[in-house]
Nucleic acid binder design. Structure first.
Lengths: 203, 203
DNA sequence: TTTATTTTTGACCAGTTGGTTAAACTATAT
DNA sequence: ATATAGTTTAACCAACTGGTCAAAAATAAA
């Protein structure tokens, strides 16, 4: 019964995602995932042979979902500054809805760097730079952006939105003492980060 | 024999640090730590009653070491811009020598946010702001820094140096395709991050 | 040397974990 | 209805894990 199949398999996948994201690969228990899905533990192994298989399926989906959020920026028909503003609005909103993803991904990537390599291989940065150069060739001379500085710039842009979520546990503690909620801080950040980057790259 | 005591206890602590940082609390095995220290597993429990005790000791020491690196910036007798340059030089050099610390700390903080709260409570941010205001009262009007934007600014500054290490697994993969080594990227970053921040805060 | 104290060890244990298996159940096809 | 194939379960297992304990070894005190 393909219908029920999908239901069960999906239920397993969703439960696994929740448990893995919260506890990490090492901390997650197959029994937890089974309970969470309301099924027998053996059924997990029926659909996904091992814990590793299940984890890899979950990890790959999440990683792709995360990377996909960076893509739209490059084909949007906007000025460079508006692209930056657009990116932070979109990306931070996405992370607000999936606040545990950064910490999960960073941790698992660190635990097994090889796993992410396959996904990275599909990214063509040279081409990315060419697109950027073409789309903004007339306004690019107003900014401190060169082909050489792209890695530094890109990682800085990502850092400003990803880091606060990855470091939420500390940040929340500090903000609390100042009477600021993490949500307010993050909402404010959409604009702050964009302004920050724009000023930093302006000649 | 207090002499030998210290030796053994220290050897355990160092081994535990290495294993915990590499594998995390969940991934670390007491047997691994014992092997690493060249002693019997029961001896771990003799000095540190449980895995939790041992982990907490390790975690607290590392967290304090990490936070301590932020402090010198506030009492150095330098202009604001030089303080920023000084910070990145010092902080990134420290992380170059302890490249796994960011991922470890972020992960464990995320796994148990309560643990870090105690350490944060000692930080007086209001006082920090007062110091900054006093030390740089004549040059502060040249920058876009207000009491309200301090959390956004501070977290941004930290993000630029910490994030690349936390995301090393991804970053290294991307840099590799461009023929850049992580070490070169990180060395370059000491200056890039400082310039980036300084331009971003300048009026 | 003898005694008392501390440090270190090997053997062991109970609980947990990922994974297996044979049987029961369900749905589809003949 | 009955055989067939796919789905789900309860019971089970071997390996592993943190932790214990009594005895041995090493050190200090008498």
């Amino acid at each position: 019964m393909a219908e029920n199949d999908k239901q069960t398999e999906e239920k397993i996948f969703e439960s696994a995602t929740e448990v893995f994201v919260e506890k990490g690969m090492d901390g997650a228990r197959m029994q937890d995932i089974a309970n969470h899905a309301g099924i027998n533990k053996a059924l997990l192994h029926y659909y996904y042979r091992t814990k590793d298989h299940l984890f890899n399926a979950v990890f790959e989906k999440i990683a792709k979902k995360m990377f996909a959020k960076f893509a739209p920026v490059f084909d949007a028909n906007l000025t460079l500054e508006d692209k930056i503003r657009f990116f932070y609005k979109e990306h931070i909103t996405f992370l607000q809805n999936n606040p545990r993803l950064p910490a999960f991904l960073l941790n698992e990537i660190n635990r097994n760097p090889a796993r992410i390599r396959k996904l990275i291989q599909n990214i063509d940065i040279e081409n990315l730079w060419r697109m950027l150069e073409e789309q903004h060739k007339d306004e690019l001379n107003k900014y401190n952006i060169t082909r050489e500085s792209i890695p530094q710039l890109m990682s800085s842009i990502a850092a400003l939105s990803v880091f606060p979520f990855a470091a939420r546990g500390i940040l929340e503690g500090i903000l609390e003492k100042l009477g600021i909620s993490f949500d307010d801080y993050m909402e404010e950040r959409k604009e702050f980060a964009a302004d920050f980057v724009i000023r930093a790259i302006k000649k």
